[in-house]
């Protein structure tokens, strides 16, 4: 059963479980518009998030998707746009 919506909470859970959390970063805080790199996640970590997002939502996430998602909010918006456009 594929979800009809992807939320920031879903993304934070993925971030936490597949890449851990840097010291001094609070993922429960207001991090939606903070760039991934400032949250301590390098490009490898963002690639890891993409693989898990694709697994969970069915939205294809080719490697160049990384350019569409500099921040958590941007990533959530991108995924939801793809879901609404029927790209699965």
């Amino acid at each position: 059963m594929q979800p009809t919506e992807f939320t920031l909470t879903d993304l934070v859970e993925i971030m936490r479980s597949c890449a851990g959390v840097d010291e001094g970063v609070d993922l429960a805080g207001d991090i939606g518009d903070t760039p991934f790199v400032e949250l301590g996640y390098d490009s490898l970590a963002v690639l890891a998030f993409q693989a898990r997002i694709q697994e969970r939502t069915g939205v294809p996430m080719p490697d160049d998707t990384v350019t569409h998602m500099p921040t958590p909010n941007a990533a959530v918006e991108f995924v939801n746009r793809q879901i609404q456009a029927g790209v699965r």
């Binding site: 597949c18 890449a19 851990g20 959390v21 840097d22 301590g40 490898l44 970590a45």
Partner: peptide
């Protein structure tokens, strides 16, 4: 060990 490093 920092959790960010444990997973990688």
């Amino acid at each position: 060990v920092p959790s960010r490093l444990v997973v990688q």
